[in-house]
Computed example of a mutant assay.
Amino acid sequence: WLRLRLEMLGSIVVLSAALFAILIGDVSGGTVGLAITYALQITGALNMIVLNGTLLESNFVSVERIVEYSNLPQEPDWILPHRRPQEGWPPSGRIEFDGYSTKYRPHLDLVLRNLTFKVEGGEKVGIVGRTGAGKSSLSMGLFRVLEAFQGRIIIDGVDISSLGLHDVRSSLTILPQDPVLFSGTLRMNLDPFMRHSDAEVWKALENAHLKVFVTSLPERLLHVCEEGGQNLSVGQRQLVCLARSLLRKTKVLVLDEATAAVDLETDSLVQKTIREAFQHCTVLTVAHRLNTVIDYDRILVLDKGEVLEFGTPDQLLSNKQGAFYSMAKESGLI
């Protein structure tokens, strides 16, 4: 399309030069030849102009990105020297949401609205709801990926917004929906900072039901994982992340649909491991299968970013008009 029109434009220029040479009778032959020669080169010049303009526009995309990134709002400080938590914080894992609301962008609507509830230390709480209810947003708020629009989150008496991001995130553990692995050995992925012995790593692998698989590998713990763990199945990546969480041993564990990529049998084994290994820890599980959390201490039902129901499974199932009862009925649990 472009080349055709540039050729037409060049031909019109050449034709115009020839016509003017004929119509203007007192022009010398050398001048006419020079004019037509230059006119014949106009097509190549136009092509070069368009090519250089396109390259300039493409290269300026990187400049636009740099300018955009330089104007992005920065995260809060990584560490606040005057507001460091005590060593071993949180000691019990008691979590309190006090009128907490948040949004993804300043101009967007709230995704969580006035959440107010308490989770005692060591409790196992399942978080359920329809798609878009705000389940994953709640876990993002707990790790301060989303900052509070209003209200606060208190863990063992400390408002997490008053601490540095590193102090908050290093004291909590999350098993994300999408497993994250880095290019390197399996040992490095399980214990990046080399804080644990091989015996502890093997124990974590056994609890995560990966010991048999790792033992069958020629290099065992030195098995090299490709970028993103591409040489492992999605379920195996998720179990590696579970083993990494078992090594961290923090008092608060968040499972964000962590067993979505494994089969039902492995899911039940993982849940059994979590109940045994994190027996004295607070566990918040964002569930996509109700049978995963049906035997938890309490269930939190979210709808449109608000707390719809919060209580023990027996209490919620006894209310036949409630949202949890209807979800359980649709899942075939009752």
Rank of each mutant, 00 (worst) to 15 (best):
F193D: 07
T285P: 14
D295M: 11
D295E: 14
V234Q: 04
E226P: 02
L15H: 07
L172F: 13
L115W: 14
L221C: 12
Y69R: 10
V212D: 10
V224A: 03
L165Q: 01
T102P: 03
A21M: 04
G184P: 01
P91F: 14
G228M: 02
L23R: 15
E57Q: 10
G53M: 15
L40Y: 14
E206Y: 08
A39T: 15
A17L: 07
A204Q: 05
P73Y: 06
D263C: 09
T173N: 05
A39P: 08
A148S: 15
T31A: 13
S171V: 08
N52H: 04
D109V: 11
W202I: 07
S58C: 06
L56V: 07
R195G: 04
V286I: 15
G122I: 04
D295V: 05
G93N: 10
F149C: 10
D77R: 12
S58I: 15
T292S: 15
T37S: 12
A18H: 04
V50D: 03
T102S: 15
S70P: 04
T266H: 03
W1V: 05
G235F: 02
H82M: 12
G235V: 04
F213S: 05
M327H: 00
L40I: 13
R152T: 05
F193A: 08
G141A: 07
A323P: 00
A45E: 05
Q230G: 09
E265P: 01
Q86S: 11
I95M: 09
D256Q: 03
E75G: 05
G141W: 02
V125M: 11
D191A: 08
M188A: 14
I36L: 08
G129C: 03
L165M: 07
G53A: 12
E57F: 10
H288K: 12
G311L: 14
E200M: 15
A328Y: 00
W89L: 07
Q271Y: 09
L247Y: 10
P81E: 06
R152H: 06
G88A: 10
T250C: 13
F97E: 02
P313N: 07
K203R: 10
A243W: 00
T312Q: 06
N207F: 06
R289D: 03
S171A: 15
S16C: 09
M188K: 10
P218N: 02
G93C: 08
V283S: 08
A261I: 05
L34R: 09
A199P: 08
D267K: 11
S58N: 04
L2N: 08
V145T: 08
Q271P: 05
I36V: 15
A323T: 10
D98Y: 05
A17F: 12
P179M: 00
H166W: 12
G305T: 06
E276D: 14
D303Y: 10
M188C: 05
T312N: 06
D198F: 12
K211R: 14
G122E: 06
I79G: 01
R187C: 01
S171M: 05
F182C: 03
A17M: 11
M140F: 13
L222N: 13
S326G: 01
Y296Q: 02
A18S: 14
V128A: 02
N71H: 12
L175N: 02
P176R: 06
G129D: 02
S28D: 15
L284D: 02
L264R: 10
A323D: 00
Q86T: 13
E276Y: 06
R113N: 14
